[in-house]
Each structure stands twice: as C-alpha cells, then as structure tokens.
C-alpha cells in the first residue's frame, strides 16, 4: 500500500491569505488602485515616498509656472551687480546684475526637463537592451551582456564630456541626448536579470500555449510584472541625468547661456562668489539640486519596498 506521494518540490499552502469575502473584495479594490494609476497609490502609503511626492510636486509646479514665480526675467542684467540678499532681490544679484532668485526658479525647469527626458531616454534604451538580452537569451544575451558590462565600467562624466566636445552643438538638448545615450547600462543589467527570472515562469510558457505572439508575451505577460523595476530605473536614470547635467555645466562644458543650477554654480564659482561673500549665489542652486535629488530618493524608497519586501521595515 502507499499514498499519494509528496512532490519533489515542497508543498504550498492551500490557505488563503484572507479568508472572508469582505477582505478579499477589499484587497481587490486595493489591487485595482495599485494597477490603474499604477504604483502611485502604493507610493502614497509609504511615509517617506509621500514626502518625496509632495516635494516633487512643488518642484513641478515651480518649473511649469516659472514665469509666475520669478519676479524678474532671469536673463535680464538691468540690475545693480553684486546686491546682497533682500533689498528687492530675494537672493541678491550676480556680478552681471542678474536676479539670482529668478534664475533659481527657471533652473528648476532645466533640471526637470533633463531629468524627465534624459531619464526616459536611458530607461527606454535599458528596456530594449534588457528585454532583448533577457528574453532571447543565448548568444544574443552573451553579446549584449558584454556591451552592458563595458558601458557599466566606462566612467560616465568623462565620456559625456568627451562626446560633447565632439558634438555638433552645445545646446541643452545635445547634452540631454548624450546623457540619455550613456546612462542606460545599470538599468539594462537589472532589467535583464529580472526578465531572465520572469521568463522561466510557467505562465510565460502557458501564454505561448494560449497562442500569444512574441510581442503579446512581452507586453502583456512580462511588462506588467516589471513596473516597479522600470520606475526605480527611471528614477535612478533621472537622478543621474540631473547630476550629470549639473556637473557638466559646473565644469563649463554645457551651454553657459542655459539657465540651470549647474551654470549658476559655474558662474558663481567662476566669479569667486564665496570669496566676495555672495553666499546665496552658490548655496541656492546647490541646495535646490540637493532637494530635488532627495525628493526622487524618497520616492524611490516606496518603489523599492514595492518590489523588495526584504527592505520593508518590520
């Protein structure tokens, strides 16, 4: 005699996480919220990322309505140079007689554009390369992995600087393009690893047996399970892009006519703002950058916790 034998894999519980109908319904609702406006609802639940979202919203409003917030034209140099903070100019004026506060407000625009566009570009490239390597596997994977590793170890800032030295123009869009084209590697590596795991799930085989084509498998079956990773990747790329633009501009390799927090720092340093005691000129853009990066970092805490329960507080 014998019994229905136990499997070669550990058994799984037949217990439901929630047993009563009400609880299940409640969970369905929570789940729907998680899916449609996406991760936003879950992010809002996390205290840290809620603070980050609020900060991000403030930056966004300031950037979009920059003309409303800035008291003067940021490029106008009609004012007396080297004014101290206060005295009709909230943060004083530059050595050329520009209003620092107005420049700060418009700088938010530049940084957000760089972050969003550069981040999107890098994320898109990372997604395409990660998907191709992870889904096709085999030799394609090995070749792409080689390039991912190469792109990972090449120092980004010198590479961007070198590329922009050869670039046909010096405009902001060229800088964004170069940043986007260089910042995809770590995202691609993470996405590839995730896809390699997802690809081996039985539901992918099941989808093939349900008659789904390659693109349906990728976009219907794989992508919805990668949202948190893509969002984290986008945040990381956006932060990298914002930082790279600021660093590049600070070194004077951007277009010095663009108004950004990086170019403000460049001019402040160039004109010896600290030595002449124009604290606000240097402090303001640095703090603004710091707050923007912090906002993104805080939001990321929520997204990270979404994908990795290990990081959740106990």
């Amino acid at each position: 005699m014998s019994m229905l034998q136990q499997g070669e894999t550990p058994t799984v519980s037949d217990a439901l996480p929630l047993d009563e109908e009400g609880a299940v319904e409640q969970q369905t609702r929570a789940n729907r919220r998680f899916r449609v406006p996406g991760w936003l609802g879950i992010l809002w639940e996390n205290r840290k990322s809620r603070v980050g979202l609020v900060m991000l919203a403030i930056f966004l409003i300031v950037a979009v309505f920059a003309p409303l917030f800035s008291p003067h034209d940021p490029r106008s140099n009609d004012f007396a140079p080297n004014l101290d903070p206060g005295s009709g100019h909230l943060l004083g004026t530059t050595t050329k007689g520009e209003d620092i506060f107005s420049q700060l407000v418009y700088g938010a625009r530049t940084s957000l554009i760089v972050g969003v566009v550069g981040g999107l570009l890098a994320t898109a490239i990372a997604l395409v390369i990660g998907l191709t390597a992870g889904y096709l596997g085999g030799t394609v994977n090995e070749v792409l992995t080689f390039f991912i590793n190469l792109a990972l170890v090449v120092p980004i800032l010198p590479l961007i600087a070198l590329l922009s030295a050869y670039a046909p123009g010096q405009g902001l869009w060229v800088v964004i393009l170069i940043i986007g084209l260089t910042g995809w590697a770590s995202g691609a590596r993470l996405k590839k690893a995730q896809i390699l795991t997802l690809r081996s799930r039985d539901y992918i085989t099941a989808a093939v047996f349900a008659g789904e084509g390659l693109w349906q498998v990728i976009f219907r079956e794989i992508m919805p399970n990668m949202i948190s990773l893509v969002v984290v990747g986008f945040m990381g790329s956006a932060m990298g892009a914002i930082g790279a633009e600021a660093g590049l501009a600070f070194l004077g390799f951007g277009n010095p006519e663009t108004i950004s927090w990086g170019t403000m720092s460049y001019w402040a340093n160039n004109q010896g703002a600290l030595v002449t005691g124009q604290w606000a000129w240097l402090l303001a853009p640095g703090l603004a950058l710091s707050f923007l990066i912090m906002a993104l970092t805080l939001v990321n805490f929520g997204v990270d916790a979404l994908g990795n329960p290990q990081l959740r507080e106990e």
Partner: peptide
C-alpha cells in the same frame, strides 16, 4: 548622497 559633490567641495 543627495548633495552635489562639487558643491560640497567648494564649501
């Protein structure tokens, strides 16, 4: 990690 390194160096 959120502070710009060039800014800290200048300070």
């Amino acid at each position: 990690g959120t502070l710009p390194s060039f800014w800290i160096a200048l300070l």
